[in-house]
């Protein structure tokens, strides 16, 4: 085969170290190199079992920063890890929920509400993926999915609707993150939670745009689709604002390309090409 030459005996202990470092108590972003190692591990082993085991032995509930960093790490691994990660994560929803139980009020450094909202969002995301296993963690565009949904307009309608609900949840979460920035301190840890949210919201946006265009083309029933169009337009404006606010955060713009959306929503009725990838 052409798989990588991985020292399987060493990688397990390395993984534990990487999880520990990604979720340490320093109020910074989870270090990318450690998160990346967790992601690569799930691909090398086509499994995330050890990732979850390793996560559960860390004392992440003892400290609000550690809890928040663990949630970011979990989100990134679910997004970018082997597709089995998304399936296997379903068994750990209860444990993810338990991470919020130790939090009383805002917490000393104000992460309480962010932790609660992150848990709420991850639960919604995992629920979406349970109902729609054809999507990967980042909603990267795959033509066949939009085609499949177009063949069954009812299924397509429901899928778009569910995607939009998830998009709304990303929007409330990002607003909360911005509202919890603190003056006079480095907000890197909070800002780093916006990275996966920008990527995920854009994946969903592209998908929804493509699917709605295809549905308009094949059903020709503009009236039946008008509730989705209205909702789409509203989400477009909120995304423009979200990305605009992100574009003012140097830490974010140095790390990822913030999508550059047009001010007005693109027409869903025309044959225009979908927005290009950033």
């Amino acid at each position: 085969g052409t798989t990588r030459n991985v020292d399987m005996s060493r990688s397990e202990s390395d993984l534990t170290i990487n999880i520990k470092k990604a979720t340490n108590a320093e109020e910074t972003a989870p270090k990318r190199k450690h998160v990346r190692s967790c992601i690569v591990y799930t691909w090398d082993h086509k499994s995330s079992t050890s990732f979850w085991t390793g996560m559960k032995v860390q004392p992440i509930m003892a400290d609000e920063v550690q809890t928040f960093k663990a949630l970011i790490t979990i989100h990134k691994v679910i997004q970018e890890g082997h597709i089995n990660t998304l399936k296997e994560a379903q068994a750990h929803v209860g444990w993810i929920e338990s991470l919020g139980r130790g939090m009383i009020g805002d917490g000393l450094r104000g992460y309480g509400p962010l932790i609660k909202e992150y848990i709420h969002f991850l639960r919604a995301k995992l629920q979406f993926h349970r109902h729609h296993p054809e999507f990967n963690g980042l909603f990267e565009y795959k033509e066949y999915i939009s085609l499949k949904s177009v063949n069954d307009p009812n299924e397509g309608y429901e899928t778009v609707s569910d995607l939009m609900t998830l998009q709304d949840q990303i929007d409330s979460f990002q607003k909360l993150v911005f509202a919890h920035f603190r003056h006079g301190v480095n907000n890197e840890c909070r800002i780093s939670s916006l990275v996966p949210l920008v990527q995920e919201s854009y994946g969903i946006y592209r998908f929804v745009t493509n699917m709605l265009r295809a549905m308009h083309r094949t059903t020709g029933d503009d009236e039946a689709l008008s509730p989705l169009r209205e909702r789409y337009n509203g989400q477009h404006h909120r995304l423009v604002r979200f990305y605009y606010e992100c574009s003012n955060l140097r830490y974010l713009t140095s790390l990822i390309t913030i999508p550059d959306l047009p001010q007005d929503p693109p027409s869903l009725l025309s044959e225009d090409d979908a927005p290009a990838l950033p």
Binding site: G1, T2, E80
Partner: peptide, 8 residues
């Protein structure tokens, strides 16, 4: 086969 190495 190993695109995730580059992607990440």
């Amino acid at each position: 086969d190993n695109i995730y190495i580059v992607k990440t």
